[in-house]
Design a protein around this nucleic acid. Structure first.
Lengths: 132, 132
DNA sequence: TGCGTATATTCGAGAGGTCGAATATACCAA
DNA sequence: TTGGTATATTCGACCTCTCGAATATACGCA
């Protein structure tokens, strides 16, 4: 029934798939996903896509960035397989590959709201920058 | 009852706290948290802390990195207020400020497991690097 | 006081991310 | 074809991150 990795043949020098390595791969995977989300524009794109598929043009229309820049950010999300693209005629439609990341964003919003101190500090920081 | 922001005084030129700006602040906040988690060592630290408070030394003992490096990563988590520190005598104890981020990590694990294709591709990639 | 242990900070080099400008590619329509 | 629209890629400047080495700080104890 189980598909867990079998013992490796003994000619592999340093066992590549023991528990330790697997946990490390998982951490690297998580870090990569976090990194892919670590930009406000990419967060915005994922939020736009939670409502369903959108064309690159529609996404671009709702972001206040250059076309090339939006395309670069879309490329990052594609590379990490957070979003997938589908071509239709002249256009490219993007959608999220998994609803799980939307859950993550929702948790992040709760996290944001939960920490009133951080929130006010941040907003005051923003207001301050504004004044300078 | 409500504590939602009052209208700003009219001498603020560009209204800093309208809906649009608030949503943007939220996206920036999310991106900052993601960025803070966007390194395998910091993911590892957060995972270590899910079991409860640990001293910097204990954390260092379980990570295979230099002392200075671990301390730098702890500083990142502190700066973004993901972890908080408490001094006791000679030592500094770290703990997570909110259990929500642990939920995020759990979702990420499911996300990882869910995508078998990505997983095997990644592990094969790892195995390949190993052979080279 | 001075020493040892625990932890943090600073520094500089290298790697990697971000941006807009320019350019390339792909598709459709005339 | 030619031209237009939609999207992606490349380039180079700039900025940020990450690391280890060295150093600094803080505390407890003799």
């Amino acid at each position: 029934m189980s598909t867990r990795p079998r013992a490796r043949s003994s000619r592999d020098k340093s066992p590549p798939l023991d528990d330790k390595r697997l946990r490390q791969s998982l951490r690297e995977f998580k870090a990569e996903i976090f990194q892919a989300l670590a930009h406000p524009t990419r967060v915005a794109i994922v939020e736009l896509l939670r409502g369903g598929e959108l064309s690159a043009g529609e996404i671009l229309g709702r972001l206040e960035v250059e076309q090339a820049n939006a395309s670069q950010h879309l490329a990052v999300l594609r590379a990490k397989r957070i979003a997938v693209s589908r071509k239709e005629g002249n256009q490219v439609f993007y959608s999220l590959r998994s609803p799980l990341l939307v859950d993550v964003l929702d948790i992040m919003r709760r996290y944001f709201e939960q920490d009133l101190a951080a929130t006010t500090a941040m907003l005051e920081g923003l207001a301050q920058e504004e004044r300078e």
